[in-house]
């Protein structure tokens, strides 16, 4: 295969992976921005999205009865709704009682919630890998020279980018978005300016998990195979992406996610498959060594 086509192939692999990491990373970064809390259970909400999608599309058979576009559209709406609800409940049960406590207490609570959710998924849906059914979407592949581009891959990428664009507009162009940004900068000051911080917190705990759940559904549809501990690895990678992009920064999460996906694909394609994750982490650590608050976060003086 000519070098350029090989490169294009890796590029497309990287962008698809990266767009999914970016979607999940957004959930981490939004919650962090407002709450200064790393929501370690976010990966599990992502997995929950995948399993709810499985239940709707495969167990209830929406995929067969409604036809792919309608079924997937409907399940996206329901998955996003249900995972948001789960996110809200998580905030209510595991984080709100700890809001005025030490930050690390909330981290451990989040880790506990993550262990709980992962095992709840295992008990509910079983420990086996679950299949989405291979023929949910028509198997169309575009060929450009030796370079292959399956339609599903394009759709996943487009969906992820569209959602991120919408979120960007929401955060930067609406009043609610303004409230989110204000609360992220300084909760106390935002309160004084009349921002209902409580509402903002609930809002980010709805939007973040919704994006994670959507990513879970996309992974299910795209790869066709899900398992109960899938949230762990995706969560860790997306969290890394969020940090490297500059945690709390929404554009940073998108950039971080795409960068991570590309690094992985290119590392795998040109250097080594088995060293890929080590290389990726090494590059990310180096980025942080030279830009200690991530790629896009402004360098602020340390708070005194």
């Amino acid at each position: 295969m000519p070098d350029f086509e090989f490169f294009l192939q890796q590029l497309s692999n990287g962008l698809t992976r990266g767009s999914i990491y970016a979607l999940i990373a957004l959930g981490y970064t939004m919650v962090y921005g407002v709450m200064k809390l790393i929501n370690f259970a976010h990966g599990e909400l992502f997995a929950l999205g995948a399993y709810l999608g499985y239940t709707l599309l495969v167990v209830f058979g929406l995929g067969g009865s409604l036809g792919p576009p309608l079924a997937i559209g409907l399940s996206i709406i329901m998955v996003v709704g249900l995972v948001s609800l789960a996110g809200y409940l998580l905030e209510r049960v595991a984080y709100r009682p700890l809001r005025s406590s030490d930050r690390l207490a909330a981290v451990v609570s989040a880790l506990g919630a993550s262990i709980f959710l992962q095992n709840a998924i295992m008990l509910q849906w079983g420990a086996q890998y679950r299949a989405f059914g291979a023929d949910l979407l028509p198997n169309v592949v575009f060929h450009i020279g030796g370079f292959n581009l399956p339609l599903v891959r394009v759709l996943v990428f487009v969906a992820a980018v569209a959602v991120m664009a919408a979120l960007h507009v929401f955060v930067h162009r609406t009043r609610l978005g303004l409230a989110i940004r204000a609360a992220a900068i300084d909760q106390g000051a935002a309160k004084l300016m009349g921002v209902d911080v409580q509402k903002v917190i609930i809002l980010v705990f709805i939007i973040g998990p919704a994006l994670g759940g959507l990513a879970g559904l996309l992974v299910g549809v795209y790869y066709g195979q899900i398992n109960f501990n899938m949230g762990q690895l995706y969560g860790l990678k997306a969290f890394t992406a969020a940090i490297v992009g500059g945690i709390g920064n929404i554009t940073g999460a998108m950039v971080g996610g795409l960068l991570l996906g590309l690094l992985e694909a290119l590392g795998e394609g040109y250097i080594s498959v088995i060293w890929k994750d080590a290389i990726t982490f090494l590059v990310l650590i180096l980025i942080l060594v030279f830009r200690p608050t991530g790629l896009l976060k402004e360098r602020v003086a340390e708070k005194l």
Binding site: V93, S109, G112, A113, S114, I115, F116, N119, L123
Partner: peptide
């Protein structure tokens, strides 16, 4: 599962 809940 129980352990996770206990942690929280």
């Amino acid at each position: 599962l129980v352990f996770g809940a206990a942690l929280v």
